[in-house]
Simulated scan of single mutants.
Amino acid sequence: MAQRLHPDILHLRQFTLEPPFVDDAYNIRNWDFSGDAIIDTNSHIRLTGDLPSQKGHIWSRQFLPSEGWQIDFEINIGGKGGYLYGDGMAMWATRGRLSQGPIYGNMDYFDGLGIVFDTYANSQHDFTFPVIMGVLGDGKTSYDYAHDGDANRKGKCEVYYRNQPDPMKVKVSYIKGSFVNVHIKLHEKDWMDCFTITNVTLPNISYLGYSALTGEISDIHNLYSVKVSTMRPGKMQEMRMPTSFNQLPAPESATSSGFFSILFKLVLVAGVFAGIYFAYNAYTKSNTNRF
């Protein structure tokens, strides 16, 4: 059965990325890509190949809704390296765009949010790699790259997502002034609540981007699809608990139809019992008259 869409959710098609990605002129409508990124029109956007010293990125031409949004995307990271591989990729919601640099393929001193998929540890930590992190930048502070973003990190979860048989699904929800929440789904597993960052306000003009970086060691970083949703004006304020749009309560009409369905079943069951009761009384009366 097809899932009913919540009536207050709006899908923003100008941010959609899906095969074949390009038009007849080999352009991606509403997006720009650069660096080592290449397009496989049958499957994915490859931000880097499994080669050293690569940087690739892709950025939306339009900025995200300032009050809030949900971004659903699919990625795959992996390669030939068994013990050494890297460096990683990231989803960005930042004021700047199309600036290639050393922070997972993006520029340093970014202003906004990064959801980072880091596969190589530059220093020692009390957690394992690969890891998913939420990092924030103010546009004035350099990223703590030598310590894998320790000074910028606001949330994380440890998940072994490298070389999975299917792309990993990621869901990032943002409500201005309230929270950023990240859910992930790996091959044949349920959705996992990765982390939540509270009291977050991103720049009113924030572009959506994806970037990746390899150094002396490398990995393939593929982006398979992107979909962005927002909510109707006035409904965003109702979402103050960290959640995803997919966890919103069912529309009132759907709840009402469910109520009437249950009521109908109760009436039907009551009718069956009433029929049994009257049949039993008739049977008892008949046997009494015989004697």
Rank of each mutant, 00 (worst) to 15 (best):
S225N: 08
Y26C: 06
F278M: 04
S34T: 05
Y26A: 11
I28M: 10
Q237Y: 11
F73D: 02
Y26R: 08
E188G: 01
L213W: 01
M107S: 13
V228Q: 05
R61Q: 13
V200A: 07
P165F: 11
D8Y: 05
S257L: 10
V267L: 10
Y143K: 01
R97L: 05
G234F: 06
S123N: 12
L186K: 08
I276S: 04
F73L: 14
G68F: 05
S229H: 12
V172A: 09
H6C: 07
T255Y: 10
E216N: 09
G177P: 07
F291T: 13
K265I: 14
Q3S: 11
K176N: 10
T255A: 12
S173N: 11
D87E: 06
N76M: 09
W92P: 01
S211Q: 03
K156A: 01
A212L: 02
S34I: 04
G177W: 04
H11Q: 13
N42G: 12
F195Y: 11
D193E: 15
V267Y: 10
L186F: 00
Y83I: 02
F179W: 09
G134E: 00
L223S: 02
Q62V: 15
H6K: 10
K235C: 02
K156P: 00
M107D: 12
Y104P: 00
I103S: 00
F127R: 00
Y145A: 11
T48G: 11
P251M: 09
D108G: 07
P19V: 06
H183M: 08
G137A: 08
N76I: 02
R240G: 10
P242V: 09
T94D: 03
P242D: 12
T128Y: 00
V228C: 09
K140T: 08
L266C: 15
I276T: 10
D219V: 03
F179E: 10
W92G: 03
M133F: 01
K285D: 14
L51P: 00
V131T: 01
N199S: 14
A93W: 02
R240W: 08
H221V: 03
R290T: 15
Y120K: 00
N122H: 05
L5C: 07
P242C: 12
A93K: 04
D36Y: 09
W31R: 06
L202S: 12
E158K: 00
P52K: 07
S173P: 04
L268D: 13
Y277W: 13
S229D: 15
G82S: 08
Y160F: 12
F117D: 02
L113W: 06
I217A: 03
Q247L: 06
L113S: 04
D50C: 10
P251S: 06
N76R: 14
Y277Q: 12
I175E: 04
A282E: 12
E216V: 08
S99F: 09
V159P: 00
E67W: 05
M241P: 01
L223V: 10
F63Y: 15
L268H: 09
E18H: 09
N76L: 13
L64S: 08
I132V: 11
I38S: 15
M168Q: 01
I262T: 15
